[in-house]
Simulated scan of single mutants.
Amino acid sequence: MDSPHGAAVTAEDFGLKGPRGWAFRGARLDAPPGALIAIEGPSGSGRTCLLLALTGRMRASEGRAEVGGLRLPRQMAAVRRISALGPVPGVSELDPAFTVAEHLRERALLQRRYDGSLRALLRPRTERTAAARNRIDTALDTAGLDPTNLPKAERTSVRDLERLEALRLSVALALIGRPRLLAVDDTDLKLSDAERAEAWELLRSVADSGTTVLAVCSQAPVGAITVRTATTATSGTSAASGTADITEADAADVSEPAEAPGATTEKTTDEKTTDEGTADAFAETGRA
Rank of each mutant, 00 (worst) to 15 (best):
D193S: 00
G90Q: 06
H5G: 11
L182S: 14
E12A: 12
W200T: 02
P4G: 09
S157P: 12
A197E: 09
R178V: 09
R57W: 11
R155E: 13
R159K: 08
A244M: 12
S192N: 10
N134K: 14
L50N: 04
Q219V: 11
T268A: 09
D208M: 12
D160N: 12
M76Q: 15
V100P: 01
D185E: 15
P73S: 13
A279G: 13
K152E: 15
D270Q: 12
P32G: 08
G116E: 11
D30T: 14
G26C: 07
D193N: 02
P147K: 07
L121V: 10
E102S: 15
S205A: 14
P261K: 09
G69D: 08
A108P: 05
L214F: 05
L173Q: 02
L70I: 13
A252S: 08
A8P: 00
V216F: 01
P257F: 13
G46N: 05
R133Y: 06
D115C: 14
A220K: 03
A139I: 08
R228V: 06
Q75W: 15
I225W: 04
R125S: 10
E154N: 09
S61N: 04
R204W: 04
A108Q: 03
R113G: 05
R28Q: 06
E162V: 13
T274M: 03
P147Y: 03
T156V: 11
E259Q: 13
V79M: 13
V216S: 01
A215Y: 03
M76P: 02
G63V: 02
R133A: 13
V79Y: 03
G177V: 06
G86N: 00
D146L: 12
I225Y: 05
G6N: 05
T99L: 08
A233P: 03
R163S: 07
E40L: 07
G15R: 05
P147I: 12
E93Q: 15
L104E: 01
V79R: 03
R180C: 09
G21R: 01
P32S: 00
L214H: 02
D95C: 13
G236P: 09
D137L: 14
C49I: 02
R81D: 14
P89Q: 01
G63E: 02
S238T: 07
T247Y: 07
V206H: 01
D160V: 12
K152H: 14
R125V: 12
E165C: 10
L29E: 09
R196P: 00
L191H: 09
A233D: 10
R59V: 07
R125N: 06
S238K: 09
A260P: 04
T148Y: 11
T126S: 15
D245L: 15
P87D: 00
A207P: 03
G41H: 04
T212K: 14
S241C: 07
A78S: 15
A260K: 12
R128Q: 15
P33I: 05
E165P: 01
A240V: 11
T10C: 04
G144W: 04
S255C: 12
A23K: 03
E266K: 08
R80H: 13
L161K: 06
G69N: 07
T274K: 00
E195C: 09
A258H: 10
I39K: 02
R180V: 08
P96E: 13
